[in-house]
Structure formats: structure tokens, C-alpha cells
Design a protein around this nucleic acid. Structure first.
Lengths: 210, 210
DNA sequence: CCAGCAAGTAAACATATGTTGACTTCCCGG
DNA sequence: CCGGGAAGTCAACATATGTTTACTTGCTGG
């Protein structure tokens, strides 16, 4: 929508080309993925145009169709990456360190954009297939989180635990969005240290260590 | 995007016209507002077309421009309505009943759509002006919530409280979206009673009654 | 060194979408 | 009963957007 100057991916001063190989399909693919993740997380799926993404990545629009079939395919690739990242966090983290892990994700506002990846999971898509993938990512993540606190599939009375895990996940994502996409102050300027305390309170309240 | 049959706003059986006056600007305006709120909340701003909204409301597209100037104007009207609703809740509610009030909002999945109005505040817009309004709504709501727990503007050391109020708000909205828009199970099927316990834990953990 | 092929580009296309202006239909006060 | 104005409709327009096709560029293996 807004027309920013494209990010050239290399320094635009004519001096040093910063070793970006000029023809490298893998790197170009990754540039597109990174640009897309940021745009989708910030503006949502429908509001992001493929030309925006291509300009950010500094490559030609047609390459999106070539490497990802379509805009929808690119979005799916972004969702998968975010899902892997999120599951890595809620998975191989000791149960009592989960709040810190979540806090770290939310606090990271850098271009790397772990927070962006979280936002990606809440922003609207208006696309049925993308919604399905997103739901799958969230289900698996919440089950992993619940399992860390003693949930076992089908076990009677532990449905409560899964519900609470999903609420904790929702809370974390909600904070991430208000912080990184909507930029609500003072939440947006809070440091990781500012966040980790309240987040610990929040997670512990929903999922008491068993 | 998907082509549903239009909701005729009156029974389509020829028998009884259900007393919908045939020309009533105020009612038509309201029909548009209701249809827009639902669409915007479910699909997001950019993914919703004015033709979708008009069809849902059973009126002509051109009336959107007439009554709300533009699609953006209609979205603003929806945001204002949601903001009023939310502020009514976080405002004139005794501090210790806030979790129940939030729970009631989140639990309401009906077409009336209080939950929709919450979702509206997180779904992406890709529109600068709408984002500004949304931010304003969220700021005022979180300040009202924080004030109920003892926050006073500018008071030293109470910034923490505002931060925590914003996180509580974010958590509530996150739950509303995962529940009503993304339809994550079992969160989506949970009853109001299922939600109020965890929500009370959540709000109390973030904002201890002072 | 150079043929061939992958990587990248540019332009065009078909369509969807927000908005507008001219036109028609209905209601109501005189 | 009727004329005027409000409420509603229709069709067109300008533009933005996803995708494709034909083309150019540069690298590399033989």
C-alpha cells in the first residue's frame, strides 16, 4: 500500500557490493521468504501485495510464482517456518522455562522477527487453505505446551489443561501482535526484562507447574 | 471471496414480509454496520469487499459510499462501535468482576458478536488511518482497566501497572480471536463457565486486586 | 571459449474492487 | 392526487493485483 523505497539487500553505495552473489536461487528464495514473513505479519495476508514483497526482497515479482507457485504458496511456506520455530520453542524447553522462552520470542522485535512469526499466526488471511495450516500449527503447539504440564491425549479431566494451554498460547500471541504489529505503547517499548515477569505470572497462573 | 447467497434481512417466503420497512435509511445503515462488523472480524479489513458486505446486508453496494463515504469510513464506524462496547465493559464494571465481564464478551459467539467486536481490534487492516483509531481504542481501554487496579497517569512506578493491563487486554483479545475467528478446538467449543475460571486466574495474576 | 541452461526481467492480461454519476422507485406533505 | 425529494439501483470507470509469457542475462561444464 505505502510505497517505501525497496530494501536493496546489498549496500546501495557503489563502493562494496557486500558479496551478494548475483544469481543464487536459494538465496533469492530466502530473501523472498524473509520479506514475506515481515509483510504478512505486519499488514496481514490480503493487504500485502506480491509486488510489495518482491520490492522488499529486491527481486522481480515473477519469481514469487516461480519459486512458490503463487502468493498463497508463499504464505504457506511462511506459516510452516513459523510453526517449526514455535514448536521448537514450546517443545524442547524445560517446562519451568517456558515463560522465558515465550518472553524471548515476544521481546525480539528485530528484523529477524521471531515476534513477527508469532503475529503471523493471528493476522487474518481470508484464505481458507492458509487458515487450515494455521489451525494445525496452533493445535500442535498448544498440545506440546499442555503436554509439558502433564496433559495426555484422551486422558479424562485433562481437557481442562489443553484448554488452558491454548489460552496461554493465545495470550502470548495477543501480546506479540499488540506489541509488534499494532505498536501499542508502552507495551511496544517494553524490554524483555519488563515482559518476562508478567509473562511468568500469566503462564504460571494458567498452567501451574505440576 | 466466497459467494454465499445474500441474507435477505426479511424472510424470503412470500407469506409474511416480517415488517421490514422498505425504505428506511437508519435501518439500512445499521444493517450495513452489522454485516461489516462480522465480515471485518472474520476475514479482516483487506480481505473483505464492499460487495460482500452489501450482499450480506441485502442492500446495494453504492449505499456504503453514500452512508459511510468509503470502505474505510465504514471500518472506522465499526471500530468506534467496538471501542464503545469494550470501554463500557472495562469501565463501569467493579474491579473484581472484570474477568467475568471479559469472559462474557469472549464467550458470546452469537451473531450479535461481542466476540466479533473484540476480534476486530486485532485483525489486520493494512490501512493507516484505521490502525490509528484502533490504537486509540486500545490505549483508552487499557488505561481504564489499569485505573481500576490503582494506576494513575504519570504516577511513578505505576507504568508497570499499565503494561500489565495492556498484556491482560492482549490476552483477552488473543483468546477471542483464536476462539471466534480461527476456531481452535477445544477453545472454540468451550462454554462461558469453562472460560471464566482460567480467565480469572489470568487477570488476577497480571493485575492483583489492590 | 562458448553453447546451453538456469536465473532473472519486463510487459501484458484478465480480473476483482472501490467509487462515482446518472437514473428509477417509492413515500409523504400539501 | 401529485410533485418533489429522499432512498435505492445500475452500469461504467479507473485502478490495483495475481499470474503468465516471451525475452534477456550471466554463469558454468565440457
Amino acid at each position: 500500500m505505502t510505497a517505501e523505497p525497496p530494501v536493496p539487500a546489498t549496500s546501495s553505495t557503489a563502493g562494496e557490493p557486500a558479496q551478494r552473489r548475483r544469481r543464487d536461487a536459494a538465496e533469492t528464495r530466502q530473501l523472498l521468504l524473509d520479506a514475506a514473513r515481515q509483510r504478512f505479519a505486519r499488514d496481514g495476508y490480503a493487504a500485502t501485495t506480491v509486488r510489495d514483497i518482491a520490492d522488499d526482497a529486491g527481486v522481480n515479482v515473477a519469481l514469487i510464482s516461480r519459486y512458490f507457485t503463487s502468493k498463497e504458496g508463499l504464505f504457506e511456506a511462511c506459516l510452516r517456518a513459523a510453526g517449526d520455530e514455535l514448536r521448537r520453542t514450546t517443545g524442547q524447553t524445560p517446562a519451568d522455562r517456558v515463560p522465558e522462552a515465550i518472553a524471548r520470542h515476544i521481546a525480539d522485535l528485530g528484523a529477524a522477527g521471531l515476534s513477527s512469526q508469532l503475529s503471523l499466526l493471528l493476522r487474518s488471511s481470508g484464505d481458507a487453505r492458509a487458515d487450515e495450516i494455521r489451525r494445525g500449527v496452533l493445535v500442535r503447539s498448544s498440545e506440546q505446551l499442555a503436554a509439558a504440564r502433564g496433559w495426555r491425549p484422551g486422558e479424562p479431566g485433562s481437557e481442562q489443561l489443553l484448554l488452558r494451554a491454548q489460552m496461554a498460547l493465545a495470550a502470548g500471541i495477543g501480546v506479540a501482535v499488540l506489541r509488534s504489529s499494532i505498536r501499542l505503547e508502552p507495551l511496544s517499548s517494553a524490554t524483555e526484562e519488563d515482559l518476562v515477569g508478567p509473562l511468568r505470572d500469566l503462564v504460571d497462573a494458567l498452567l501451574p507447574p505440576h
